[in-house]
Computed example of a mutant assay.
Amino acid sequence: MPISALDVLDRKMLQELQQDGRITNQRLSELVGLSPSPCLRRLRQLESEEVITGYVALVDPVAVGLSVTAFVRIRLDRQDDRHLAAFEEAVAGFPEVMECYLMSGEADYQLRVLVPSLAAFEDFLRFKLTRIPAVAEVTTSFALRPVVYRTALPV
């Protein structure tokens, strides 16, 4: 669904659902000013058009032992389609990689990696990341603490 096709009610529904993905249809309908049936129809439409792509529980990484956040910039020695695809397939299989972006500028990729310790990061780097063909350079910055962390999009 193109963004222009979202009306005020759709946007209000998305805002509410991003704050509480477990909200009942009854409560959602009250908050957006619709009766329950039309609200549910709109919700199903947003899901079927993949404006809403899923529902998740947000987990505190530190609470589950993942206290080290690393931002890793990767430079490949070859940027042809085969090497890009191989890199992307490899990192998609690493559970430590929370996000991976193809970048413009000095780095080809930027990753957000979560691990329990610096030793675990070293293992990730030595035994996984640097073993991917065409990885030429790896630069890492470690997060000291989050300042802004949002999951809700500004709709």
Results as ranks from 00 to 15, higher is better:
Val64Pro: 08
Gly65Tyr: 01
Leu66Lys: 11
Ser67Val: 08
Ser67Met: 00
Val68Asn: 01
Val68Met: 02
Val68Gln: 04
Val68Ala: 00
Thr69His: 12
Thr69Ile: 12
Thr69Tyr: 09
Thr69Glu: 14
Ala70His: 10
Ala70Thr: 12
Ala70Phe: 08
Ala70Trp: 08
Val72Ser: 01
Val72Phe: 04
Val72Asn: 03
Arg73Cys: 06
Ile74Arg: 07
Arg75Ser: 14
Leu76Val: 13
Leu76Gly: 06
Leu76Arg: 05
Leu76Ala: 12
Asp77Cys: 11
Asp77Leu: 10
Asp77His: 13
Asp77Val: 14
Asp77Glu: 12
Arg78Leu: 10
Arg78Val: 14
Arg78Gly: 05
Gln79Asn: 13
Gln79Met: 14
Asp80Gln: 07
Asp80Ala: 11
Asp80Ser: 12
Asp80Arg: 11
Asp81Leu: 14
Asp81Cys: 03
Asp81His: 07
Arg82Cys: 01
Arg82Asn: 06
Arg82Gln: 09
Arg82Met: 06
His83Trp: 08
His83Gln: 08
His83Lys: 10
Leu84Arg: 13
Leu84Cys: 06
Leu84Gly: 00
Leu84Ser: 04
Leu84Pro: 01
Ala85Arg: 09
Ala86Ile: 04
Ala86Leu: 04
Phe87Leu: 09
Phe87Tyr: 14
Glu88Asp: 15
Glu88His: 06
Glu88Tyr: 03
Glu89Arg: 13
Glu89Pro: 00
Glu89Asp: 14
Ala90His: 08
Ala90Thr: 09
Ala90Phe: 02
Val91Glu: 02
Val91Pro: 03
Val91Cys: 07
Ala92Ser: 13
Ala92Pro: 00
Gly93Thr: 09
Gly93Leu: 07
Gly93Trp: 02
Gly93Ala: 07
Phe94Lys: 00
Pro95Glu: 07
Pro95Arg: 01
Glu96Lys: 05
Glu96Val: 03
Glu96Ser: 13
